[in-house]
Simulated assay, not measured.
Amino acid sequence: MSTSVPLIVKLLASSVSVANRAGKIVRDVMSKGELGIVEKGKDDYQTEADRSAQRCIIASLAAQYPNINIIGEEDNPDTEGDVPSDWIVIDTDKDVLSLECPSSLQGVKEEDIVVWVDPLDGTSEYTQGFLEHVTVLIGISVNEKPVAGVIHQPYYKTLIDGEKKMGRTIWGLQGVGVGGFTPAPPPDSLIITTTRSHSNALAEKGLQAMNASQVLRVGGAGYKVLQLLEGVASVYLFATSGCKKWDTCAPEAVLSAAGGKLTDILGNYYKYGASEQRLNKTGVLAAVNNELHSYALSKIPEELKELQSKK
Protein backbone atom coordinates (compact mmCIF):
# COMPACT_ATOMS: atom_id res chain seq x y z
CA MET A 1 0.00 0.00 0.00
CA SER A 2 1.54 3.27 -1.07
CA THR A 3 2.32 5.69 1.70
CA SER A 4 1.57 8.57 -0.68
CA VAL A 5 -2.13 7.71 -0.71
CA PRO A 6 -4.09 9.83 1.82
CA LEU A 7 -5.33 7.96 4.89
CA ILE A 8 -9.05 8.33 4.15
CA VAL A 9 -8.65 6.84 0.68
CA LYS A 10 -6.53 3.96 2.01
CA LEU A 11 -9.02 3.26 4.78
CA LEU A 12 -11.95 3.26 2.36
CA ALA A 13 -10.04 0.95 -0.01
CA SER A 14 -9.32 -1.39 2.91
CA SER A 15 -12.95 -1.26 4.05
CA VAL A 16 -14.21 -2.31 0.62
CA SER A 17 -11.98 -5.40 0.66
CA VAL A 18 -12.84 -6.20 4.27
CA ALA A 19 -16.59 -5.87 3.60
CA ASN A 20 -16.28 -8.35 0.74
CA ARG A 21 -14.65 -10.89 3.07
CA ALA A 22 -17.24 -10.27 5.79
CA GLY A 23 -19.98 -10.87 3.24
CA LYS A 24 -18.53 -14.28 2.42
CA ILE A 25 -18.50 -15.11 6.13
CA VAL A 26 -22.19 -14.17 6.31
CA ARG A 27 -22.96 -16.52 3.41
CA ASP A 28 -20.81 -19.31 4.84
CA VAL A 29 -22.65 -19.27 8.17
CA MET A 30 -26.00 -19.46 6.40
CA SER A 31 -24.88 -22.30 4.14
CA LYS A 32 -23.79 -24.35 7.16
CA GLY A 33 -27.26 -23.93 8.65
CA GLU A 34 -26.12 -23.27 12.22
CA LEU A 35 -27.03 -19.63 12.81
CA GLY A 36 -26.31 -19.57 16.55
CA ILE A 37 -29.13 -17.11 17.28
CA VAL A 38 -29.00 -15.11 20.53
CA GLU A 39 -31.80 -12.74 21.56
CA LYS A 40 -30.17 -9.51 22.81
CA GLY A 41 -33.52 -7.81 23.50
CA LYS A 42 -37.08 -7.60 22.22
CA ASP A 43 -36.96 -8.15 18.42
CA ASP A 44 -33.18 -7.73 18.59
CA TYR A 45 -31.15 -10.75 17.53
CA GLN A 46 -27.53 -11.70 17.02
CA THR A 47 -26.26 -14.64 14.99
CA GLU A 48 -22.94 -16.36 14.46
CA ALA A 49 -22.73 -14.38 11.21
CA ASP A 50 -22.95 -11.09 13.14
CA ARG A 51 -20.25 -12.18 15.56
CA SER A 52 -17.86 -13.65 13.01
CA ALA A 53 -18.23 -10.87 10.44
CA GLN A 54 -17.51 -8.27 13.13
CA ARG A 55 -14.40 -10.13 14.28
CA CYS A 56 -13.17 -10.15 10.69
CA ILE A 57 -13.83 -6.44 10.13
CA ILE A 58 -12.44 -5.11 13.39
CA ALA A 59 -9.36 -7.36 13.42
CA SER A 60 -8.53 -6.51 9.81
CA LEU A 61 -8.90 -2.74 10.19
CA ALA A 62 -7.24 -2.60 13.61
CA ALA A 63 -4.20 -4.45 12.28
CA GLN A 64 -3.64 -1.81 9.61
CA TYR A 65 -4.89 1.28 11.44
CA PRO A 66 -4.14 0.76 15.15
CA ASN A 67 -5.00 4.29 16.29
CA ILE A 68 -8.46 4.47 14.73
CA ASN A 69 -11.43 4.14 17.07
CA ILE A 70 -13.62 1.29 15.79
CA ILE A 71 -17.10 0.81 17.24
CA GLY A 72 -19.03 -2.33 16.35
CA GLU A 73 -22.62 -3.27 17.06
CA GLU A 74 -21.82 -6.61 18.63
CA ASP A 75 -20.09 -5.59 21.87
CA ASN A 76 -20.28 -9.15 23.15
CA PRO A 77 -17.26 -11.12 24.48
CA ASP A 78 -18.02 -13.79 21.88
CA THR A 79 -16.99 -11.33 19.16
CA GLU A 80 -13.49 -11.07 20.62
CA GLY A 81 -10.59 -13.51 20.90
CA ASP A 82 -8.46 -15.23 18.30
CA VAL A 83 -9.41 -14.54 14.69
CA PRO A 84 -8.70 -17.11 11.95
CA SER A 85 -5.83 -15.98 9.74
CA ASP A 86 -7.95 -16.15 6.58
CA TRP A 87 -10.29 -13.57 8.13
CA ILE A 88 -7.52 -10.98 8.37
CA VAL A 89 -7.75 -8.92 5.21
CA ILE A 90 -4.82 -6.73 4.21
CA ASP A 91 -5.81 -6.23 0.57
CA THR A 92 -7.08 -2.88 -0.68
CA ASP A 93 -9.48 -2.18 -3.52
CA LYS A 94 -7.35 -0.88 -6.39
CA ASP A 95 -10.11 1.25 -7.94
CA VAL A 96 -10.74 3.08 -4.67
CA LEU A 97 -7.01 3.39 -4.01
CA SER A 98 -6.62 5.36 -7.24
CA LEU A 99 -9.19 8.01 -6.25
CA GLU A 100 -8.16 11.62 -5.85
CA CYS A 101 -8.74 12.60 -2.23
CA PRO A 102 -10.65 15.86 -1.61
CA SER A 103 -8.36 18.55 -0.19
CA SER A 104 -10.52 18.83 2.94
CA LEU A 105 -9.70 15.20 3.86
CA GLN A 106 -6.04 14.98 2.88
CA GLY A 107 -4.65 15.88 6.29
CA VAL A 108 -6.84 13.56 8.35
CA LYS A 109 -5.01 11.47 10.98
CA GLU A 110 -6.01 8.15 12.51
CA GLU A 111 -6.86 9.87 15.80
CA ASP A 112 -9.51 11.99 13.99
CA ILE A 113 -11.42 8.95 12.75
CA VAL A 114 -14.22 6.83 14.20
CA VAL A 115 -15.33 3.79 12.22
CA TRP A 116 -18.86 2.51 12.86
CA VAL A 117 -19.44 -1.15 11.98
CA ASP A 118 -22.66 -3.07 11.55
CA PRO A 119 -21.40 -6.51 10.51
CA LEU A 120 -24.87 -7.70 9.51
CA ASP A 121 -27.56 -5.07 9.08
CA GLY A 122 -30.92 -6.79 8.88
CA THR A 123 -30.31 -9.69 11.28
CA SER A 124 -34.02 -10.37 11.72
CA GLU A 125 -34.42 -10.61 7.96
CA TYR A 126 -31.34 -12.84 7.74
CA THR A 127 -32.89 -15.35 10.14
CA GLN A 128 -36.22 -15.26 8.26
CA GLY A 129 -34.77 -15.72 4.79
CA PHE A 130 -35.17 -12.18 3.42
CA LEU A 131 -31.55 -12.29 2.33
CA GLU A 132 -31.70 -9.46 -0.20
CA HIS A 133 -32.27 -7.05 2.71
CA VAL A 134 -28.99 -7.98 4.40
CA THR A 135 -25.99 -5.64 4.20
CA VAL A 136 -22.56 -5.22 5.78
CA LEU A 137 -21.97 -1.60 6.81
CA ILE A 138 -18.67 0.19 7.45
CA GLY A 139 -19.01 3.93 8.07
CA ILE A 140 -16.05 6.30 8.39
CA SER A 141 -16.52 9.54 10.31
CA VAL A 142 -14.08 12.41 10.75
CA ASN A 143 -14.66 14.98 13.48
CA GLU A 144 -18.15 13.53 14.07
CA LYS A 145 -19.26 13.70 10.40
CA PRO A 146 -19.66 10.70 8.05
CA VAL A 147 -17.27 11.22 5.14
CA ALA A 148 -16.98 7.75 3.60
CA GLY A 149 -18.83 4.49 3.77
CA VAL A 150 -19.28 0.99 2.40
CA ILE A 151 -22.53 -0.91 1.87
CA HIS A 152 -21.98 -4.54 0.89
CA GLN A 153 -24.83 -6.84 -0.15
CA PRO A 154 -23.72 -10.46 0.38
CA TYR A 155 -26.65 -11.94 -1.56
CA TYR A 156 -26.78 -9.60 -4.55
CA LYS A 157 -26.53 -11.73 -7.72
CA THR A 158 -24.78 -10.60 -10.89
CA LEU A 159 -23.70 -12.36 -14.08
CA ILE A 160 -20.10 -11.77 -15.15
CA ASP A 161 -18.95 -13.48 -18.36
CA GLY A 162 -21.81 -15.91 -18.01
CA GLU A 163 -20.96 -16.86 -14.43
CA LYS A 164 -23.11 -16.02 -11.42
CA LYS A 165 -21.33 -13.91 -8.81
CA MET A 166 -22.62 -13.32 -5.30
CA GLY A 167 -22.19 -10.00 -3.58
CA ARG A 168 -22.06 -6.32 -4.49
CA THR A 169 -20.11 -3.56 -2.79
CA ILE A 170 -21.07 0.10 -3.03
CA TRP A 171 -18.90 2.85 -1.61
CA GLY A 172 -19.17 6.60 -1.19
CA LEU A 173 -16.62 9.34 -0.49
CA GLN A 174 -17.41 12.96 0.30
CA GLY A 175 -16.45 15.20 -2.59
CA VAL A 176 -15.89 12.27 -4.96
CA GLY A 177 -19.17 10.40 -5.39
CA VAL A 178 -20.19 6.75 -5.27
CA GLY A 179 -18.79 3.61 -6.85
CA GLY A 180 -20.06 0.09 -7.36
CA PHE A 181 -23.15 1.17 -9.28
CA THR A 182 -24.80 4.19 -10.88
CA PRO A 183 -27.55 5.96 -8.88
CA ALA A 184 -30.96 6.23 -10.57
CA PRO A 185 -33.44 9.13 -10.47
CA PRO A 186 -36.26 8.90 -7.91
CA PRO A 187 -39.65 7.49 -8.94
CA ASP A 188 -42.30 9.84 -10.34
CA SER A 189 -44.61 9.31 -7.36
CA LEU A 190 -43.85 9.54 -3.64
CA ILE A 191 -42.78 6.08 -2.47
CA ILE A 192 -41.69 5.64 1.14
CA THR A 193 -39.39 2.91 2.41
CA THR A 194 -39.59 2.05 6.09
CA THR A 195 -39.06 -0.72 8.63
CA ARG A 196 -40.75 -4.08 8.34
CA SER A 197 -39.97 -5.35 11.84
CA HIS A 198 -39.68 -2.41 14.27
CA SER A 199 -42.74 -0.27 13.67
CA ASN A 200 -44.98 1.32 16.29
CA ALA A 201 -47.84 3.83 16.51
CA LEU A 202 -45.55 6.87 16.23
CA ALA A 203 -43.77 5.50 13.19
CA GLU A 204 -47.10 4.76 11.52
CA LYS A 205 -48.38 8.26 12.24
CA GLY A 206 -45.40 9.74 10.44
CA LEU A 207 -45.99 7.49 7.45
CA GLN A 208 -49.68 8.37 7.21
CA ALA A 209 -48.83 12.08 7.06
CA MET A 210 -46.78 11.55 3.91
CA ASN A 211 -49.79 10.54 1.77
CA ALA A 212 -47.43 8.38 -0.25
CA SER A 213 -48.55 6.39 -3.27
CA GLN A 214 -46.81 3.34 -1.83
CA VAL A 215 -45.07 2.25 1.37
CA LEU A 216 -42.32 -0.37 1.14
CA ARG A 217 -41.59 -2.27 4.33
CA VAL A 218 -38.11 -3.76 4.27
CA GLY A 219 -35.29 -4.58 6.66
CA GLY A 220 -32.02 -2.79 7.31
CA ALA A 221 -31.01 0.87 7.03
CA GLY A 222 -28.42 -0.04 4.41
CA TYR A 223 -31.00 -1.68 2.17
CA LYS A 224 -33.43 1.23 2.55
CA VAL A 225 -30.80 3.75 1.45
CA LEU A 226 -29.94 1.52 -1.51
CA GLN A 227 -33.62 1.64 -2.50
CA LEU A 228 -33.32 5.44 -2.63
CA LEU A 229 -30.17 5.30 -4.74
CA GLU A 230 -31.65 2.73 -7.10
CA GLY A 231 -34.78 4.81 -7.73
CA VAL A 232 -37.07 2.29 -6.06
CA ALA A 233 -38.20 4.72 -3.33
CA SER A 234 -38.31 8.50 -2.87
CA VAL A 235 -37.93 8.84 0.90
CA TYR A 236 -36.77 6.70 3.83
CA LEU A 237 -38.71 7.49 7.00
CA PHE A 238 -38.61 5.99 10.46
CA ALA A 239 -40.27 8.54 12.69
CA THR A 240 -39.20 7.24 16.09
CA SER A 241 -36.12 5.95 17.91
CA GLY A 242 -34.78 2.48 17.22
CA CYS A 243 -31.81 2.45 14.90
CA LYS A 244 -28.26 3.13 16.04
CA LYS A 245 -25.20 5.01 14.80
CA TRP A 246 -23.72 1.88 13.20
CA ASP A 247 -26.96 1.53 11.21
CA THR A 248 -26.79 5.01 9.68
CA CYS A 249 -23.13 6.11 9.48
CA ALA A 250 -22.23 4.22 6.30
CA PRO A 251 -25.62 4.75 4.60
CA GLU A 252 -25.49 8.48 5.35
CA ALA A 253 -21.95 8.75 3.97
CA VAL A 254 -22.85 6.92 0.76
CA LEU A 255 -26.14 8.79 0.30
CA SER A 256 -24.46 12.15 0.95
CA ALA A 257 -21.72 11.36 -1.57
CA ALA A 258 -24.49 10.79 -4.14
CA GLY A 259 -26.11 14.17 -3.39
CA GLY A 260 -28.71 12.89 -0.94
CA LYS A 261 -29.42 13.77 2.66
CA LEU A 262 -30.00 11.83 5.90
CA THR A 263 -31.03 13.51 9.16
CA ASP A 264 -33.35 12.93 12.09
CA ILE A 265 -37.04 13.81 11.68
CA LEU A 266 -36.33 17.32 13.00
CA GLY A 267 -33.94 17.94 10.12
CA ASN A 268 -30.81 17.77 12.29
CA TYR A 269 -27.72 15.78 11.38
CA TYR A 270 -26.55 13.09 13.76
CA LYS A 271 -23.00 13.29 15.13
CA TYR A 272 -20.74 10.26 14.94
CA GLY A 273 -18.04 10.97 17.49
CA ALA A 274 -16.93 8.15 19.77
CA SER A 275 -18.58 9.75 22.82
CA GLU A 276 -21.99 10.14 21.17
CA GLN A 277 -24.84 7.98 22.38
CA ARG A 278 -25.42 4.95 20.19
CA LEU A 279 -29.19 5.33 19.80
CA ASN A 280 -30.62 7.64 17.12
CA LYS A 281 -33.34 8.93 19.43
CA THR A 282 -35.12 11.22 17.01
CA GLY A 283 -35.72 8.90 14.09
CA VAL A 284 -34.44 8.92 10.53
CA LEU A 285 -35.46 10.90 7.46
CA ALA A 286 -33.53 10.42 4.23
CA ALA A 287 -34.00 11.26 0.56
CA VAL A 288 -31.94 11.08 -2.59
CA ASN A 289 -31.88 14.88 -2.94
CA ASN A 290 -32.41 17.98 -0.81
CA GLU A 291 -35.70 18.88 -2.48
CA LEU A 292 -37.33 15.58 -1.60
CA HIS A 293 -35.87 15.73 1.90
CA SER A 294 -37.30 19.23 2.49
CA TYR A 295 -40.70 18.17 1.18
CA ALA A 296 -40.85 15.12 3.44
CA LEU A 297 -39.67 17.15 6.43
CA SER A 298 -42.51 19.63 5.87
CA LYS A 299 -45.08 16.80 5.88
CA ILE A 300 -44.11 15.38 9.28
CA PRO A 301 -46.66 16.60 11.85
CA GLU A 302 -45.36 19.26 14.25
CA GLU A 303 -46.79 17.36 17.21
CA LEU A 304 -44.68 14.35 16.24
CA LYS A 305 -41.58 16.52 15.91
CA GLU A 306 -42.24 18.11 19.29
CA LEU A 307 -42.71 14.73 20.92
CA GLN A 308 -39.44 13.44 19.50
CA SER A 309 -37.53 16.61 20.37
CA LYS A 310 -38.29 16.05 24.08
CA LYS A 311 -36.46 12.73 24.11
Rank of each mutant, 00 (worst) to 15 (best):
V5D: 01
S14W: 01
S17W: 10
K24I: 14
V26H: 03
G36R: 03
I37L: 03
E39S: 07
K40W: 02
G41Y: 08
K42Y: 10
D43M: 07
D43V: 04
A49T: 12
I57V: 12
A62W: 00
A63C: 02
Y65K: 12
N69Q: 15
N69R: 11
I70P: 04
G81L: 12
D82H: 14
V83L: 06
D91C: 04
L97S: 12
S104K: 08
S104V: 04
L105Q: 10
E110W: 02
E110Q: 14
E111G: 04
I113F: 09
V114P: 09
V115H: 02
P119N: 05
D121Q: 09
T123D: 12
T123K: 15
S141D: 02
V142F: 09
N143V: 05
N143H: 14
E144I: 05
G149W: 04
V150L: 06
H152R: 13
I160K: 12
G162H: 02
Q174P: 02
G175E: 10
V178W: 00
G180D: 01
G180K: 10
G180H: 00
F181R: 01
P186E: 05
S189L: 02
S197P: 04
H198D: 06
S199G: 14
A203C: 11
M210V: 13
R217I: 03
G220E: 04
E230Q: 06
V232C: 02
S241N: 13
G242Q: 02
E252K: 15
A253S: 04
L262C: 11
I265E: 11
L266V: 11
G267Y: 15
G267I: 11
K271Q: 15
G273W: 05
A274L: 09
S275H: 14
S275E: 14
K281C: 13
V284Q: 11
A286R: 03
A287K: 04
V288S: 15
E302F: 03
E302A: 11
E302K: 14
L304Q: 10
L307N: 05
L307Y: 13
L307K: 13
